[in-house]
Nucleic acid binder design. Structure first.
Lengths: 255, 255
DNA sequence: AACGATTATTTGTATGACAATTGATTTTTA
DNA sequence: TAAAAATCAATTGTCATACAAATAATCGTT
């Protein structure tokens, strides 16, 4: 019997993901997203993963089933587990997107994400303005209030995310919900980006307030426009981070 | 030996429903999507599922890990597996969306899907027009040719889907890729809808051709406009199906 | 009533055995 | 020789069992 040695991969003792199969799924998923195993290639077989990480085949199989569920892999008898083509990956899965962010350039991600946001969010705001139910305004205004009370830029991220998710929910179109995590990741990454230079961007609060007001007034066109301004502001923040020489003090144009 | 068919033909490639854990995942997933187990509620424990389906606990666990990966469930020791809130479900996962479609009214799905398409596709067409690489036009024109050569409405679905996926790919923004399955499902359902009344809608071919031409010419505004017309046409088809009294012969406006 | 120890229940992990599938190889046969 | 059939081998798929770990529920003591 081969002496089992302790797992050599990162053990996040803090995070509650102490379960072996979860750590395995994470480790394998990161390898796939970072390109260690390219689409179309075969992964090591279950026994090999087990030996690599000092885990039983049972745990390995459960990890693989998880990744299976995320569209990263397909397993076939006798042949093994093969990495699926990228367009079958569930990129909008929380874990997959997180692994993806970790493996790709942050700026590139932010730019892709902004591109998607600019496609979607103006239309979302318009839908929200015309289709929201009365109760859904509360969440919007609560988020806005949360942003106002934030004392640091870090504290503002959470209510900011909530604001945009509330907008999404107010469309009453559940097919839109999956795009929420792009917003979450984009804002979280954006905070990482800006917080080094820009302690607390007060300018975004009135911009959000404009959106909320337009939605509350059920004015679709105005809501769309207000969101577009908001996104342009975000673009400016990203662009400012682009040149590290500059102090990144752009876009202080309170409404 | 019982008479075995030679089967020298292309064998019908039966897909995985013979694996126990896959069937289990499907069965449980359908129950969740159809509301048998509501978000927040507890599922039967692993032993009970096993008894219900005559499967081992191992297989049940693998099925649950699959659903876990799709965001439908979280499992905790001693408490069991709990259904996640809907906004954490990976609705853009192929399986989840399929289960969802099966459990919801088709018209409602089509309308939600069209709403999303109208948000995204005009912008996608514009991006495709401005950002495509030369090689990506080939896929677009190939799909268009496939539509032309289709002899029935059924044969047209596949190239139609390919056309829109090619557009998506031409944006060179991988965060948009997950959206593709909404197109797939929407067009497949739409075909089911229209094929009963409308044998072959020739009208859509020139509309698609307009889009392809605008993209090839790198004319973003024109591409956006052409797609909007295409989507309005689709809307009309759906609306026509809405009144079963009418013969559904709308929208025959060849360009 | 508060609090700590105990218990019971459920998921998590490990192990070993065997079945099923199928790519690769070898043998048979036309 | 070439095609078809039989065989082999590697890998995932399934099962049964045992035990570990976590924790909700219970009980007992103060």
């Amino acid at each position: 019997m081969p002496s089992r040695k302790p797992a050599s991969f990162t053990k996040p003792k803090k995070l509650p993901n102490h379960k072996v199969h979860t750590r395995l799924a994470q480790a394998i998923g990161e390898r796939i997203l970072s390109g260690v195993y390219l689409p179309g290639s075969l992964l090591p077989n279950e026994a090999e993963w087990g030996a690599m990480f000092g885990a039983s085949r049972t745990a390995v199989r459960e990890a693989i089933k998880t990744l299976n569920g995320k569209g990263l892999l397909v397993s076939r008898t006798k042949v093994g587990s093969r990495v699926e083509p990228r367009d079958r990956w569930n990129l909008l899965d929380r874990d997959v997107l997180a692994w993806h962010c970790a493996a790709m350039d942050r700026r590139a991600f932010l730019q892709s994400a902004q591109e998607v946001r600019k496609l979607l969010e103006p239309g979302i705001a318009e839908l929200a303005a015309t289709k929201h139910s009365p109760g859904q305004l509360a969440r919007l205004t609560a988020a806005l209030e949360g942003m106002r009370q934030a004392k640091t830029a870090g504290e503002m991220v959470e209510p900011d995310v909530q604001f945009h998710l509330a907008l999404l929910a107010a469309t009453n179109n559940e097919l839109l919900a999956p795009f929420g995590i792009i917003i979450e990741q984009a804002l979280a990454n954006l905070f990482d980006y800006t917080s080094r230079h820009n302690p607390k961007p007060l300018s975004v609060i009135p911009l959000h307030a404009n959106v909320a007001a337009a939605v509350a007034a059920s004015d679709g066109a105005k809501a769309r426009h207000a969101v577009m301004i908001l996104l342009e502001d975000t673009d400016a923040i990203i662009a400012a981070g682009q040149q590290p020489g500059r102090p990144a003090k752009m876009a202080l144009k309170p409404a």
